[in-house]
């Protein structure tokens, strides 16, 4: 049985993510410290709130290095919202702050005249085929809520884009690592399908 570990670094509501996995019938466990990563086959890095606070908490609770090791060990990892942003090199929220650097690129605030946060349902355009999007229509809808967006330096990491004034990176992938800016656990059928797809991808 595949056990999905949800990293609890005190950044946001993890219960809703676990509720969605329960609903789909996938066993999951909230990880309170890196020692609990033992026996876990997949990892989800969720996150709500500000980047700097999230990065600091990830270090403080000891998950920073173990996450880098898990990536190297080919453990499938999914970052959600700020959890996705943390995968990038750096963010400009509250000054300049370093991320895990697994995806080369930056996290920048929306600087157009549209309302910020970008809050509500938007469509993700798939730039590449991916098991994460299996069974999800082109006319999909995902729920977003964020003021900063990710921009990978190399287009090969742009798995899916969404438009809000301009295109930003809504989904990224590098080998066994995925990140999504939207909240699949709050995106009704499309979101549940995406989580189910992540639960089904084969650990390498």
């Amino acid at each position: 049985m595949i056990m999905i570990g949800i990293i609890n670094y005190r950044c946001g509501n993890l219960q809703n993510l676990q509720n969605a996995l329960d609903f789909l019938g996938h066993p999951s466990r909230l990880l309170e410290n890196p020692e609990q990563m033992q026996g876990i086959q997949k990892l989800i890095l969720p996150g709500v709130g500000a980047f700097r606070h999230a990065a600091n908490n990830l270090k403080e609770f000891g998950f920073w290095e173990p996450l880098l090791k898990a990536f190297a060990a080919k453990t499938p990892i999914l970052g959600i919202c700020v959890g996705m942003q943390l995968l990038f090199s750096k963010s400009y929220e509250d000054g300049e702050n370093e991320g895990l650097g697994l995806i080369e690129g930056e996290v920048v605030r929306f600087d157009h005249d549209l309302k910020v946060p970008h809050m509500g349902w938007n469509r993700v355009e798939f730039h590449q085929e991916d098991p994460l999007f299996e069974g999800i229509a082109k006319e999909n809808w995902f729920y977003f809520v964020h003021s900063y967006a990710c921009y990978p330096k190399d287009q090969q990491y742009l798995l899916g884009g969404a438009f809000y004034g301009h295109e930003f990176c809504a989904a990224t992938r590098r080998d066994n690592l995925w990140g999504v800016q939207f909240h699949p656990e709050k995106s009704q059928e499309d979101g549940l399908r995406l989580l189910n797809n992540f639960a089904k991808v084969n650990p390498c």
């Binding site: 219960q15 609903f23 656990e185 709050k186 979101g191």
Partner: peptide, 8 residues
């Protein structure tokens, strides 16, 4: 609610 509906 959080266990039964998956919208915000």
């Amino acid at each position: 609610l959080a266990r039964e509906i998956f919208i915000p």
